[in-house]
């Protein structure tokens, strides 16, 4: 990645910016998919179903935002699905021990952040490749969640807890969708308007140049993976809330959905480029596709094929556009 590209990326990629044109491609794709399902099914384009899609996609969206930060630094985080399971079961155990909903959630999310920070430490201080470090954490996290629960569901949680994972505001807007929007705006702001955000892009564009310009590579790396861990922890808590029961098996394989959503949304797998808005569109392309294919009652195996094809086509279109 040339220095020139990194200059372009600095401070200009984000939720609302001049490079909105870049998102136009994937957004058009989303609209086309939506249009096709609106015509082919009776129930796709209804308020009820669109809110359901938003609710189903909110969780993957949050994980994809985490993944966006990591991939912009030219890293990858394979442990988000396992970290969310750890946070979920810790939250469940604390709730059963009577610590109350806010405190249990806070501690669980912080534990997620801690797991992420450990990833960052392993990558920056021990010099382990992100793929390997987070692969290790993926196994460790899943193991910890299984050990804590003996791989049994943690049930009997307070029914009030449900609000965070599936409650409604104004009788129709799901709480996870609101959380997703707030987090998206916050993290787009951090990415575009703060020094930390600039370091994230600098790290992914050209690590040596960034180091020479005085960017603290170690702290930035730890920070990025800690952010990823915190968001995974948040999702873990929300998923446990949705079922009012925490599972050690929660989030199995979600890291792949999150990575796919970021890539479809135009985050460069080489690092240095990506936007939160693009990622959200990417997540919704996957969410709408799954929902629409379910509504069409398409065979589950064909759905897997369709999603794989969309990932490859989306990335190819993105590549063509960038040339």
């Amino acid at each position: 990645m040339s220095v020139e590209t990194s200059k372009i990326s600095f401070g200009k990629s984000g939720l609302f910016n001049k490079k909105i044109f870049n998102e136009l491609g994937s957004f058009t794709g989303l609209l086309i998919i939506g249009l096709v399902f609106s015509i082919t099914t009776d129930n796709f384009f209804t308020m009820n179903n669109l809110l359901t899609v938003a609710l189903q996609t909110a969780y993957i969206c949050l994980l994809a935002i985490a993944e966006t930060y990591v991939i912009i630094t030219s890293g990858i985080d394979l442990s988000v699905g396992s970290i969310l399971a750890v946070s979920g079961v810790i939250c469940g155990k604390l709730l059963l021990a009577g610590f109350g909903i806010p405190l249990s959630m806070l501690v669980a999310i912080l534990v997620g952040g801690l797991c992420g920070a450990i990833n960052g430490l392993a990558i920056s201080k021990m010099g382990i490749a992100p793929f390997i470090a987070t692969l290790g954490m993926m196994s460790i996290g899943r193991g910890v969640a299984n050990v804590i629960t003996d791989s049994l569901p943690i049930s009997g949680l307070p029914e009030d807890f449900f609000f965070i994972g599936g409650g409604m505001v104004l009788e129709s807007i799901p709480v996870p969708v609101i959380i997703m929007l707030v987090v998206a705006i916050l993290f787009a702001f951090i990415l575009n308007r703060t020094a930390f955000g600039k370091y994230v892009f600098a790290l992914g564009s050209n690590e040596d140049a960034a180091r020479l310009s005085g960017v603290n590579i170690g702290m930035t790396t730890i920070g990025v993976y800690a952010v990823s861990g915190l968001l995974s922890g948040l999702v873990g808590v929300m998923l446990a809330a949705r079922l009012v029961s925490a599972q050690a098996q929660a989030g199995l394989g979600y890291e792949l959905d999150a990575i796919a959503a970021s890539i479809i949304g135009g985050v460069s797998p080489m690092g240095g480029a990506g936007t939160i808005l693009g990622t959200i569109i990417g997540a919704f392309i996957m969410g709408v596709l799954r929902n629409g294919l379910n509504l069409l009652n398409v065979n589950a195996f064909w759905q897997q094929i369709a999603i794989g094809v969309v990932i490859i086509v989306a990335v190819y279109i993105d590549k063509l556009r960038r040339k």
Binding site: T41, R290, N294
Partner: peptide, 9 residues
């Protein structure tokens, strides 16, 4: 999620 979609469809 699957159940929601099946009910909608």
């Amino acid at each position: 999620s699957l159940t929601q979609d099946i009910l909608t469809a």
